[in-house]
Write a protein that binds this DNA or RNA. Structure first.
Lengths: 242, 242
DNA sequence: CGAGTTATTGACGAGAGTCAAACAACGTGG
DNA sequence: CCACGTTGTTTGACTCTCGTCAATAACTCG
């Protein structure tokens, strides 16, 4: 669901986090960069989806609210990702900045015209849609059949191995709050917290403040994620933290 | 995730269940019809996805197996639906016939060429992909935050209100087994069974054999499905049993 | 440094899973 | 057409994971 853009990236690291490279990115190049403060919304569920967004910096969460206020985070998106690619009418989610973000905006009309026009962009767009769907299916599996620990490990694995993420001595930044993680994994904040504590006890990770985790044993984390052939090819090319 | 094809359908009821109408269907017209016995596989997870399929008759389930044999059904597909639209490399699921089926097959290569060629088919295809993703997100919400009863009611609602389904005096055919339903809803067979029994006690549905349910109180079912504005527009145009 | 927020930990309970037995539906063959 | 075996479903008793509620601790920011 996220990192969608990234498999196609050339990802030349430009010192800072590299963002360019995805051919769809070129569409957003000419748009002005907007700044979104952490916690602020980018768009609202139910509103007409008149724009798509590309994140050039920061992390964004997409969520839906059901009935009595239960919140579901359907995806996290990172620098380089496009938000709203699969919308046809209204926004099906509210997008909010997890951290301070920089984004670019493109009208859906223009986006569609450009896609229609360009023989090059079209396959890139279709490919993106396909990967979004595939990612959503991965998340279905997680929510359907994995226990709390497996969910958390899957999440951390994806964060740790996502393109554009480089772990310096295993240090992983986790920008989202426990509540965000819980709502993404279909758990409660307490269960997320306990699961992290258990991993810490077993010396698989070492928490460092709220938003940093030192990954001591990535291989073990992969095993615990409950994926069939953990940490082999699959974990990599299936990619997406989504 | 499923019924994807159907929103675009004109769905003229031809006495039997109508299947034609979706513009993508035209692609499969020239292919020979194959017969697949109930329980038999149409394609396997991990194999190269060389074909797409259209179901012309019957019901199909898509599933993935995780680690120690846990099965997740990611979607059910019905007559008119296209299976495999969002694949790029390998099949990400095994497709099996729930009932005896008739299907048509089209090579992915040819499909892609035709899509590229036709100004008409392309938006239809993109639209299909978008709806697949949107449907997957609906299922994320279900698996993430709904309890057993809500899951079951959501499922029955979608079955009952899906395009191409006409309830005669509330009689709903449920072709899939309890195990299928359980694996689709992220529950066990026992929990599904108990949930149905409870709905029956409350006279909301009346079971009739294994594969029939008389829906006595559709409105109540909608309320219990835990969707915000149940049974109003949303339930309908969001559609998809998926 | 201190108020407010976010995270951790513990005690407890509920909802769904597990195991096992009884039961109903279906298909086959006599 | 009915007996019988097979398979799928229902129901009950029990267990366990995760959710709930509540208290404490850690971080953040003015």
């Amino acid at each position: 669901m996220l990192m969608q853009g990234q498999q196609a990236f050339e990802n030349v690291d430009l010192g800072v986090k590299a963002v360019q490279g995805n051919s769809l990115s070129s569409l957003f190049q000419m748009s002005a960069t907007e700044t979104v403060e952490a916690g602020k919304a980018i768009c609202w569920e139910g509103d007409a989806a008149r724009h798509l967004f590309q994140i050039t910096e920061g992390v964004v969460r997409l969520h839906r609210i059901i009935g009595d206020g239960r919140r579901v985070i359907t995806a996290f998106h990172f620098a380089g990702d496009v938000v709203g690619s699969f919308l046809q009418g209204d926004f099906l989610f509210t997008a909010e900045a997890v951290t301070d973000c920089k984004i670019r905006r493109l009208s859906r009309k223009q986006f569609q015209e450009e896609i229609e026009r360009s023989e090059l962009l079209r396959p890139a767009y279709i490919s993106l849609l396909c990967r979004e769907t595939a990612s959503a299916h991965d998340q279905l599996v997680l929510l359907s059949r994995k226990n709390a620990e497996e969910r958390l490990c899957t999440f951390l694995m994806k964060l740790a191995t996502r393109d554009g993420e480089t772990l310096h001595q295993g240090l992983l930044e986790v920008p989202m709050s426990r509540q965000d993680i819980a709502d993404y994994l279909g758990l409660t904040i307490e269960t997320v917290s306990r699961s992290i504590s258990k991993l810490a006890q077993r010396k698989i990770v070492i928490p460092d403040g709220r938003h940093n985790l030192r990954i001591v044993n990535l291989a073990r984390l992969a095993q615990l994620s409950g994926n069939v052939d953990d940490f082999s090819d699959r974990t990599c090319h299936r990619g997406s933290v989504h």
